[in-house]
Write a protein that binds this DNA or RNA. Structure first.
Lengths: 121, 121
DNA sequence: CCCACTGACTTGTTAATTGCAAGTAAGTGA
DNA sequence: TCACTTACTTGCAATTAACAAGTCAGTGGG
């Protein structure tokens, strides 16, 4: 079990919404996991196989952080053997605009990048 | 002098624009500095006095990273004594939408946050 | 029953980053 | 000369991240 990290659900540096958002998502992996969930991945192993190859302990840690913040929900979709799926909550899905603006900025300003997101229909 | 960190200008984890954007801005401070520059702060000491109190060595490091990536430009605005101002480049100003979507998400989902950005007129 | 295999993590260890606190250096003003 | 300001550096201790390996339930095959 990944220990309940002390950077608790509410340790805000300030009342600024940008700072507070960064307190939750300000690292190199969280938004990448969310990108993959947007792209339709649902299981741990699918998330693990992203092209960026997130380290497994970090993936586990980010998933608990994101579920703690109710951005992601973890639920078993079968028993025998138990298998889990991770899905975005409404709150998580509303991160879409952040991701989209990052895609736009990245594609425009970082040479060699190319988005390949399947439009949600 | 802050040493030219090896996370060079082009060390991309993948061709994904989100991942590549996070390679540059994926940490707790970079976007906060950019927020302050958007808010009209220009000097090192102004940036240092943000409510989140960014550690001075981190601020110095982020400023060189951001200038390396041509998101920020550093220029002296007076001699005797030399004083510098940091300003956003066009590329940096185009990060606006990312910041704006973070403000929107933060205000909606993180209780106790309140934006106070002066609209650029 | 035994063995290999998969999914979903955990543990251990080393490496890299952060976060203070303190220090430096040029220049100003009294 | 002294105190003060701006703009950083430097030195560690303390976190975090990265990588490799290990665990554990369950399944399918021989």
């Amino acid at each position: 079990m990944v220990k309940a990290d002390k950077s608790n659900i509410s340790t805000k540096r300030s009342i600024c919404p940008v700072a507070s958002t960064l307190d939750i998502l300000g690292d190199k992996w969280s938004l990448l996991v969310i990108r993959d969930l947007f792209a339709g991945k649902t299981t741990y192993s699918e998330l693990q196989n992203s092209p960026e190859k997130v380290p497994t302990n970090i993936l586990a840690n980010r998933l608990v952080r994101l579920t703690d913040h109710e951005i992601v929900e973890k639920k078993p979709y079968q028993t025998h053997p138990v298998r889990y799926e991770y899905i975005l909550t409404a709150k998580g899905r509303e991160l879409g605009p952040i991701l989209k603006s990052m895609v736009a900025w990245g594609e425009k300003h970082i040479p060699g990048t190319k988005a390949m997101i399947k439009k949600k229909r």
